[in-house]
Nucleic acid binder design. Structure first.
Lengths: 246, 246
DNA sequence: GTCATCTACTGACGGATCGTCAGCAACTTG
DNA sequence: CAAGTTGCTGACGATCCGTCAGTAGATGAC
């Protein structure tokens, strides 16, 4: 490990290469843009290289087990060198983190679906089913990155734990709101905690989506799985039994 | 993912409630005992050393992030050398795998609970609640090893994927049987697939148990979480709303 | 065009970890 | 105690990581 560095604000870049103060600011993203490892602001060419590296990472994360992702491979495949990679990202995780952040921005749509759509009667079940489908589709689209998120979170990487929260929380809160909103019209037990119920639902969705292929391996059809989840979501949110014919 | 598998469609569990025999035929376990890396059969002293190594692994897996578990540390801490470790285990995972297998033998109790207890009326809810509690307790007791199992499975390690199945399958099948058994007395929809529903329930239990700490971090009480899950389990198995007062 | 001064890139290296193997130590047996 | 078997480990080659000094490329002034 490197010794602790004095966190110093970057002086104008006019210093000779003799004593280069390496300032690794909290994130590598500045107010207005990003910084390379040496603190300089990348220009056109630099950003193009960074982007190329990102795309290559995105591609290789699909085809390679996470633990086998080597910086060397990504860099070489992108037509550059490992040292260049480290110019823009402290490690492979950091690159994937950027991909995860881009992905996270698409999540609120799911929450909106929960808030916008009706939860009454038959339409309520349709909402539940649509949510489950959308969730599964989302997970499928981003499965490579999401697997790394799960993995890194389980390994205790706080950067990914944070992203995971950003991902799942909007949906959890939306569901909790929906449940709370049903307190009036439906008869939920008094001791029901909406956030707990919502969290459980999201945990279910996330784990099933993540192990989708495990289910299929056991001969369980995805249709049946999603239908089961839709019913559970519907019942948990509304407190009503789902319509029987569907 | 994996190439298309011959999906031998699981016959709708008309199978008898036969107990699942746990055949723990791992690679390094012979018909009569174990073999060291060089093929020799360990004697008294050798097995003692192996055991010591195992215990040390079990201890360190609790205190150290999985990825930071070094063979050197385990070996030195156990008062021996890295080379000796490799005499008995091909890698750290292999040692943990043994721990996981020991753990897996305790699981059928949960399945038995599902099969033995009543699912009718109030007692049915109690069964669900007891199952959830037992599951959470099990996960808590073995959380260190289970986290590695989840982790290694996510990383694509087949040895652990297998163990994970051995762990979750008995319970899933037991739940599926219970659901199937309710077809007569209760009014489940015709298109309900018991295995799918059971799989969803187990996925929910596993993920919530695994992220228990995360729930608490968000201020969600474990009591509320378990109650939510108990209700979901009860409703999914019986098709009935749970008793309101509880 | 050439020089000055940036930015961008990389070969090469020190450090760390992994898993192996030849050989020494300890124990058992006759 | 000599021979044979089992158990242990120091030392080593191989591999991967992240850094840094220094080269190459771009840009702009004159």
């Amino acid at each position: 490990m490197s010794p602790a560095r004095p966190t110093d604000s970057l002086p104008p870049s006019a210093a000779p290469p003799a004593a280069v103060p390496i300032v690794a600011s909290a994130a590598d993203v500045d107010e207005e843009g990003l910084r390379a490892a040496d603190g300089r602001v990348p220009g056109r060419r630099g950003r193009a290289t960074r982007q190329k590296l990102l795309e290559q990472t995105a591609e290789m994360v699909h085809s390679t087990p996470f633990r086998d992702l080597k910086v060397v491979d990504i860099a070489r495949q992108a037509g550059t060198s490992p040292a260049t990679f480290y110019q823009y990202f402290p490690d492979v995780e950091a690159a994937i983190l950027v991909l995860a952040e881009e992905m996270a921005q698409q999540i609120p749509e799911l929450g909106a679906m929960v808030q916008t759509r009706s939860w009454k009667g038959r339409a309520g079940y349709d909402t539940a089913a649509a949510l489950v489908d959308a969730f599964m589709a989302f997970w499928e689209t981003h499965r490579a990155v999401l697997r790394v998120v799960d993995l890194a979170t389980a390994e205790g990487d706080d950067r990914f734990r944070k992203i995971r929260s950003q991902l799942l929380n909007p949906l959890t809160r939306a569901l909790a709101d929906a449940i709370e909103g049903q307190r009036a019209t439906s008869k939920h037990p008094d001791d029901l905690d909406p956030m707990a119920a919502a969290g459980v639902l999201v945990a279910m969705l996330a784990n099933v989506a993540g192990h989708r292929y495990g289910f299929e391996f056991w001969g369980i059809r995805t249709v049946d799985t999603t239908r089961s989840m839709a019913r559970i979501v519907h019942t948990t949110v509304t407190g009503q039994r789902p319509p029987t014919d569907s």
